[in-house]
Amino acid sequence: MENIIEVSGLAKLFANQSALKDVSFQVKKGETFGFLGPSGSGKTTTIKILTAQLAQTDGTALVFGVPASKLKEAGYRKKIGVLTDNSGLYARLTVHDNLKLYCDLYDVPHTRIDEVLDMVNLKDAKKKAISKLSKGMLQRITLARAFLHKPELLFLDEPTSALDPVNSKHIYKGLESLKEQGTTIFLTTHDMNEAEILCDRVAFLNDGVIQLLDTPKALRQKFADHTLTVELADGSKEIIDRGPEGAEAMYNYMKESKVVSIYSNEPTLGDIFVEVTGRKLS
């Protein structure tokens, strides 16, 4: 499968502090790639390098096969959508006027405005001034603006950090449909549940390097301790091995009709994150 992003040996030095030391990864066409890491680990910095907003100190970053720094041409800009943390919307203008400007800049018909507002569940806010919107609404408008032009590659830097669960779900549905249309998504998030729902593969960035990179399922299996927890009728919980040693214990519990429920002790992405980075999520 074709690689949309190819990063190798990427390093970034700010003044005297290194944000990225040696980062390498590839993002395949059509996949949703989760870029996870503690606060300050360099996720936003990586997105900035990949979107030609920042130059790297060392290493190569190819997007669509060309160095990221060369992406300033209109033709490439039309293939890329970016959502960053600070909204960048015109406060005095309405939602509609903000999106209309971007329709014109990207050569997109104005009818697209209603479509994207529907995707972020904000059709009613069309005539409202940006300055009158809540934080979560702003984030959704910024998101709508990011995929207004149906980009082939979408960078999302914490797209749901200000959203309630209902609206997050709505956004997930929207992102799923973009994915079905073949959009490649590069996503950073602090929400491990979100990463699990959306991402085909995730990378854990820590101390300037990628410490893990795989599908969420493979990571869970890799970090699983191969035990089951059995909740018994008397309210106690027993941890038993999934192997042959556990079989007899389980057989006995079941024979005596003592089993209330069984859980698999697979770690969540959050557990793996804490284990790998040795730090709490912020």
Binding site: T51, A74, G75, I80, S87, G88, L89, Y90, Y102, L105
Partner: peptide, 14 residues
């Protein structure tokens, strides 16, 4: 000041 330039710079507008 309002960080809107970034969005414009990321768009096809030069």
């Amino acid at each position: 000041e309002k960080n809107t330039l970034r969005g414009l710079m990321l768009s096809p507008a030069s």
